[in-house]
Computed example of a mutant assay.
Amino acid sequence: MKRRDAREKAFQTLFSIDSQGFNPQDALTQVLEDEEASPFLSVLVQGVYDNHKEIDQKITENLEKWSIERLPTVEKTLLRIATYEMFYEVDTPIGVAINEAVELAHLYGDDKSGKFINGVLSKMTH
């Protein structure tokens, strides 16, 4: 599984955890169906799940005129994944983490999602 595919599956998994209250393993099983989870996918899902309070704090510190509670689930989930990739144990260049989150925002969000995500994540790097 390519990292881009793993990120998309991680997004789908974490989205279902956040919006429907699934536990990580059940959500991952449902998203993957019969596919095997790559180590990168497992690290992303478990890492975001285990560290979501600290990740949400980092996101909150970089939001302007928004609160984490008011963010749509798509944007919140993508910000969590990218923040985890940028600041935790995953070996991903910051620019790649931001670009991948923006690309997924174009697929799953609305017209402004990519720009919003890019702005928040770019602010974290300064």
Rank of each mutant, 00 (worst) to 15 (best):
H52Y: 09
K65A: 15
E85Y: 00
K123M: 01
N118M: 05
G109M: 07
L79Y: 03
P72E: 11
D5T: 14
N118S: 12
A37C: 03
P24N: 08
E69N: 14
Q20H: 14
E100G: 01
V43G: 01
G21I: 05
L104Y: 03
H126L: 15
K65N: 15
D50S: 12
S19T: 14
K9D: 12
N62Y: 03
A101K: 01
R70D: 14
H126F: 14
P72M: 08
A82T: 00
L44T: 02
V90N: 04
I81R: 03
L104Q: 07
A105I: 04
N118T: 06
P72Q: 11
S38H: 01
E36Y: 03
Q12M: 15
D26C: 00
H106F: 04
D56P: 01
E85I: 00
E33S: 09
I98L: 05
N51D: 07
L78H: 03
G21S: 09
H126Y: 15
T60S: 15
Q57H: 12
A97K: 00
E8A: 14
N62W: 10
R70V: 10
D5V: 11
A101H: 03
A37K: 04
I98T: 06
V43C: 02
Q30D: 02
V120M: 08
P39D: 10
W66H: 15
K112V: 11
I68G: 00
K76R: 12
Q46V: 11
Q12P: 06
E36G: 01
S16F: 08
H106V: 07
S122F: 09
R7C: 08
D34C: 07
G21W: 09
D26V: 01
F40Q: 08
R70N: 13
Q57G: 10
V31E: 04
E69D: 14
Q20Y: 15
A10N: 07
F22Y: 14
F11H: 08
Y88P: 00
G119L: 10
E54M: 07
I94S: 11
T60N: 12
M86A: 05
I55M: 01
T83S: 11
A101S: 06
Y108Q: 01
F22D: 12
L41T: 04
H106G: 05
G21M: 10
K2W: 09
Y88G: 01
E54D: 11
S113P: 04
M124P: 02
D5S: 13
A105C: 07
H126V: 14
Y49P: 00
E8S: 14
E35C: 04
A10V: 02
I17Y: 03
E85W: 00
M86T: 02
Q30T: 09
E100M: 05
V45Q: 06
L28C: 01
M1V: 13
V74R: 09
A6V: 03
F22G: 03
F116W: 07
M1I: 12
S113K: 01
